[in-house]
């Protein structure tokens, strides 16, 4: 179980901003991901939660090299993907796939369902002709679609069915690792549970490893073994799913958890609510020190000066916050 499939170190993704029309020059950078590190064990589901703009989708894409990292390492079975180029990288793509958020945008509207699911197999010359067709039908069957639909176009299906098609495509190459980027957030409530169950079943059957990205904390808790919480391009807390929900350490995690509405009025009444003040600061000019200090109910002077490192508080429960340091090392 302690076998590491993927490890990232000091991962940074900055999007430069250019000004000027004829000779554009760089005037700054959106610091979408700013020096994060974690590892994903073989066979586990790591949940990545955070609000929009925290860099969770960028992280997922940087792992797959769909966005090239500005710096840092992405070690997949010990090999650094961030270092790879061209054909070498293309070969590696067999082993890692992605499931996308928007089932309407993630399927080419001019290709049939069969062609969409077959594309990865054709690209890597894995199957052709009759065999290709059989494999595509088998994939569709596996995700709970009627295989006779392969001649149809995506627009003929509902959101949940399209998401199944997208999952079949991701499975086609028998990958080891799948990044699922908000795979349920665009779906109807009654369909979300279906897709979560499907993802869980496939993981079992194919021994998959997931990075499950979502802003839906309840869904992340349901599917993940461990959960990482991101805020403004940094990981602020990382722990097992039990720990992070029962004993959250970081004030942001606590606020995030308390903000989730629970569909039970009785529970709702008893809960204590931490409502954060203010908005997410711009990732173009993130606050100095701890990035959360502008909204943190426990902010101390020290927090403005020093960015707290992600520290292990036992049992693999990591958090990046000064309130656990005793005593506050400086007066400001």
């Amino acid at each position: 179980m302690n076998d590491i499939l993927l490890e990232i170190q000091q991962l940074k993704v900055h999007f430069p901003i250019f000004k000027g029309t004829l000779f554009p020059r760089e005037v700054g950078a959106v610091q979408a991901v700013n020096g994060i590190g974690f590892s994903v064990r073989r066979g586990e589901t790591l949940g990545l939660v955070g609000e929009s703009g925290c860099g969770k989708s960028t992280t997922g894409r940087a792992l797959l090299q769909l966005i090239r990292p500005t710096s840092g390492q992405v070690l997949f079975e010990g090999k650094d993907l961030a270092d790879m180029q061209g054909e070498e990288l293309r070969r590696m793509r067999r082993h890692m796939q992605m499931i996308f958020q928007d089932p309407f945008a993630s399927l080419n509207p001019r290709m049939t369902v069969g062609d969409i699911v077959a594309e990865p197999l054709v690209t890597f010359d894995i199957a052709s002709g009759k065999e290709l067709q059989t494999r595509v039908q088998h994939l569709l069957h596996e995700v709970g679609m009627d295989p006779k639909f392969i001649r149809r176009y995506p627009h003929e299906f509902s959101g949940g069915q399209r998401q199944r098609i997208g999952i079949a495509r991701a499975l086609a190459l028998n990958p080891k690792f799948i990044v699922a980027d908000e795979p349920i957030s665009a779906l109807d409530v009654s369909i979300q549970a279906q897709i979560m169950n499907l993802l869980a079943d496939l993981k079992e059957r194919h021994n998959l490893t997931y990075l499950f990205i979502s802003h839906d904390l309840a869904a992340v808790r349901h599917l993940s073994h461990r959960v990482a919480v991101m805020y403004l391009g940094k990981i602020v807390e990382l722990a097992s799913h039990d720990d992070i929900y029962s004993t959250p350490k970081h004030p942001y995690t606590q606020a995030l958890l308390s903000a989730v509405p629970i569909p039970d009025p009785a529970v709702q009444k008893k809960r204590e609510r931490i409502v954060l003040r203010g908005d997410l600061p711009s990732p173009l000019h993130p606050p100095a020190g701890c990035r959360f200090h502008t909204r943190c109910p426990y902010a101390m002077p020290h927090c403005i000066a020093v960015d707290p490192p992600l520290r292990d508080y036992g049992d693999g429960h990591f958090a990046a916050c000064h309130i656990f340091d005793t005593p506050p090392p400086s007066k400001l």
């Binding site: 769909l66 793509r93 992605m98 996308f100 945008a105 993630s106 990865p120 890597f124």
Partner: peptide, 12 residues
């Protein structure tokens, strides 16, 4: 669009 990204992630 995501389907282009999907194609890239499939190594197309």
């Amino acid at each position: 669009k995501e389907f282009v990204e999907a194609a890239r992630s499939c190594g197309v």
